[in-house]
Design a protein around this nucleic acid. Structure first.
Lengths: 349, 349
DNA sequence: TTGAAAGCGCTAACAC
DNA sequence: GTGTTAGCGCTTTCAA
């Protein structure tokens, strides 16, 4: 009887997946080469002889082979996935950022895993955890204020991170954005220089809008010695309806009928414009209006909206470049990229 | 000398990854159990004794273990990833769909891999191929017109697919949307019933907008026996600026100064409204305006915009439910879900 | 230029 | 309740 220190005949511990899946092995068999050669043909075609390459390509076509990036990711420890967290994709500010960002990343073979956080830190944390388990090669976060757990998770994952739409001296890894307080102050100075001595703020939105408002208010008061009237809707999105309501409130409750109104978004500013027109208030003669964001429509309202321009698509692109540079392992990377902003004078102020 | 038909001592064919990565094995070692038990503790906690469970959870906390979903996906053949392709995320129509869709999917543990196709079939094809290599568990496509290659790839991947924002009798798998021609006809009938005998179409956008326009035109002509004036900007996005320009063109080149103007989007309709006001044209007395989409602002323009409402978030939710039902392997699944639309009469027509 | 072997970190299947 | 084994489909390494 044969000695049996040879390896035991393997017991099938597991049924194979449902039949028919085409793998590199299948393709290789068809082309008369091994599985590795197929892998090489795909990742480094010039490391394979022209003849085999052709046979492999034919086999791929014939079988309809689609490489399994999951297996590739596991083996190479590169997922080619980028995790992107934004507060709300229905907000054009963020979706246009993403547009520029993902375009660039896609060109380099990365796909975007996208989630909304709804301005909620707890949601951000939970979503980030879910994303990190998918082992993204990079992470895009909106804003620079994050929970300690978010920072900890990110640091632990040793993954490049870019925070956008704001800047700070202490980014997790790097940030691309602009100073919101600076923007608020710039508007206050612009308004003052334009001769307005009274002001109101119309706010709806996130913590960044709050900081713009605060800086505007402080600076305007400092320059003009007058209080700034505040209309705040911190909860929920900035909408045209809220802009209209805000002007009503300003007029009816605050008797605010002259001066400048600084809105936290173009959409609200547009609402103010509409309500002003409806109420027979002339803009900018009686009331001036300044928006924020310079969305497409801002140049085409009547009167055209004076606002603050930020190049969202370029910002998204810079963010992508920051990540890509990190993937390349470049040294001396900037950790704070300030893309700035610009006050655009049109007709409304 | 010992006989050597025993397996050869393994030669390290590959260096291990950089040190320090925490795996289930690490956690198990720390908790005094095997790796599988850790796996079970995570996926089926009640299959593990309370005591071990506690030790495992402690070990997880202590090590900062984050499960590797890539490895899980490879082993289980489930990626928990959904591929979503939309024409443009900066268009609120699509982003609000996505909002509802991804919310629901996320609740069930799925993450969204998102790409834009820019209304370009070739782009859609290339992006889909990239997505499919990531082995998504489901695919969301916008529209029902896709290249043969797209259909072939999808069928070959044997993955549930939901096509949204349009319907057809021959979906790849299933579709959730509404009939665009029906919507166009409904507007024609609404306009006719409202007493308008002359009409113009202002169009910018995709093939679906084209079909609405065509149906509107045919039906309006059929009912009123009058030609419908056409302003077409098939390339590029629908914008406020284009709406304004369209009205100028209608007035200056076509002498169109009475009747109803049907726009392919609310944004353009809003542009028409603004231009009309600026030109001293009364709406709806002289010119009536109808939009499409019922975006948030539509109810708050002045005059308020008459438009066609489609519940985008609900549509996204239905799409998610359709996929989830397929994941559950339910039988007798509807392959065409018509969510309908509604003409909303406000002040502009 | 090609191939063999090992292993990425997990889940499925089965035995105890 | 827990462990053992095999394997998911690739990439990496080394040898030829």
């Amino acid at each position: 009887m044969e000695q049996s220190n040879a390896p035991k005949p393997a017991r099938p511990a597991r049924k194979p997946h449902q039949g028919g899946r085409v793998t590199m092995a299948t393709v290789g068999r068809m082309a008369g080469v091994s599985q590795v050669t197929v892998s090489r043909a795909l990742s480094d075609p010039h490391k394979v002889s022209a003849d085999t390459l052709k046979r492999i390509q034919e086999a791929i076509r014939a079988t309809g082979f689609v490489p399994n990036a999951i297996a590739g990711a596991l083996a190479s420890n590169k997922s080619l996935l980028i995790s992107a967290l934004v507060p709300a994709i229905t907000n054009v500010v963020y979706s246009s950022l993403l547009h520029g960002f993902s375009k660039k990343m896609r060109e380099h073979g990365y796909q975007i895993m996208l989630s909304e956080t709804g301005f909620d830190p707890a949601e951000e944390e939970a979503t980030l955890a879910a994303h990190l388990s998918r082992r993204p090669d990079g992470v895009l976060l909106t804003g620079v204020r994050h929970s300690p757990d978010v920072r900890r998770m990110l640091l632990g994952a040793r993954v490049p991170v870019v925070e956008i739409w704001d800047i700070t001296d202490t980014p997790i890894d790097c940030c691309v954005g602009f100073s919101h307080p600076d923007a608020g102050r710039a508007v206050a100075e612009f308004a003052t220089a334009s001769g307005y001595r009274k002001a109101a703020c119309v706010l709806a939105g996130d913590e960044r809008a709050q900081r713009r408002r605060q800086a505007f208010t402080d600076r305007f008061t400092e320059l003009n010695g007058t209080e700034v009237v505040q209309i705040n809707h911190p909860e929920g999105p900035a909408t045209l309806a809220r802009g209209r309501g805000a002007l009503r409130e300003l007029i009816d409750k605050h008797g605010f009928t002259e001066g400048v109104i600084y809105c936290s978004s173009d959409l609200q500013a547009h609402g103010v414009l509409i309500e002003a027109r409806k109420s027979g208030i002339r803009v900018p003669e009686q009331l001036a209006v300044i928006g924020f964001g310079d969305q497409e429509f801002a140049a085409h309202t009547d009167p055209a909206l004076t606002t603050v321009h930020v190049n969202g698509e370029k910002l998204g692109l810079s963010a992508a470049n920051a990540l890509l540079a990190r993937f390349r392992g470049e040294e001396d990377l900037a950790s704070v990229i300030d893309v700035g902003f610009e006050v655009i004078r049109r007709e409304s102020a």
